[in-house]
Amino acid sequence: MGTAVHLCGCFNSTTSNSHQLQPFKTRTKCNYAAQSVKALPIRILSVGKKRSRGLQLLVDDYIEKIKYYCSVEDVQIRPNPRNARDHRAQVDDEDTAVMNIIRSDDWVVMLDERGQDIGSEQMAELVGGASNTGASRLSFCIGGPYGHGRKIRERANISIKLSSLVLNHQIALLVLMEQLYRSWTILRGQKYHH
């Protein structure tokens, strides 16, 4: 992945091993809408405590919807309770756990409150254009209560935020799942069904 790629005019190579998102131009339509798009498998890595039954039912419902378009995997990573008093050590341990799951050929999207603010059309472009990066999988990373560690921040190919509001990691997961489903309906030119 050492060469520059072009994705809707939004990606370029700023380092030798990662593709960074440049500011999206305001658009009302996704460049990939209703075109044939190679569906990369999606893996969602989220750090956090056990989910409520209600949240898990909603996540499972979205997984079933997304599976119609591509392979999707939901991976939960437990926060490190041994270092609960030492936030830095906890983040470092969670960081290591996430990095142990990410493969070298993953295209990594970090969800972060300081990431680039994108809309549904831009999310669809991100999903639709990820296959042009040379990656074999699209991995979305949701940090725990203290955010992401240094390793994942350096490894991420792109950093986005889902809202200008700071979202709890469980709410962020649900918003991400809904936006991934919405992205595929945009890419396929289909009507969005709740």
Rank of each mutant, 00 (worst) to 15 (best):
L138V: 09
S120V: 03
L174E: 00
E125C: 11
D106L: 04
L126I: 12
Y146G: 11
L167G: 06
C141L: 15
N157Q: 12
E125K: 00
N168G: 06
G119T: 08
G115V: 09
S159R: 15
M177E: 00
P145D: 05
G128W: 03
Q116R: 04
L138F: 07
E178S: 01
C141K: 12
V109L: 05
D106S: 11
S131G: 13
M123L: 14
I160S: 05
S164C: 09
I158E: 04
E154D: 14
G149M: 12
I142P: 09
L126R: 01
H169D: 05
Q170I: 00
H169K: 01
I171Q: 01
R150N: 10
V175A: 02
T133G: 08
D106I: 09
N157M: 08
D105I: 11
K161D: 09
L173S: 01
M110F: 10
G128C: 07
I152N: 10
I118Q: 01
L174Q: 02
S136T: 14
L174D: 02
L167P: 07
Y146A: 10
A130L: 05
M177T: 00
Q116F: 04
A124D: 01
D105G: 06
N157V: 09
M123W: 00
L167V: 08
N157I: 06
G147Y: 07
N157P: 09
Y146W: 15
T133H: 06
R155A: 12
N157T: 08
P145F: 12
Q170H: 04
S131T: 10
L126K: 00
I171A: 05
K151M: 14
V127E: 01
T133E: 06
W107F: 15
L174T: 04
G144W: 15
D106V: 10
M110V: 13
L165F: 13
R155E: 06
R137I: 08
G134D: 08
Y146H: 15
M177Y: 02
R114E: 05
E154C: 11
I160R: 02
S163I: 10
E113Y: 04
V175P: 00
L174K: 00
P145K: 08
N132A: 13
L126Y: 00
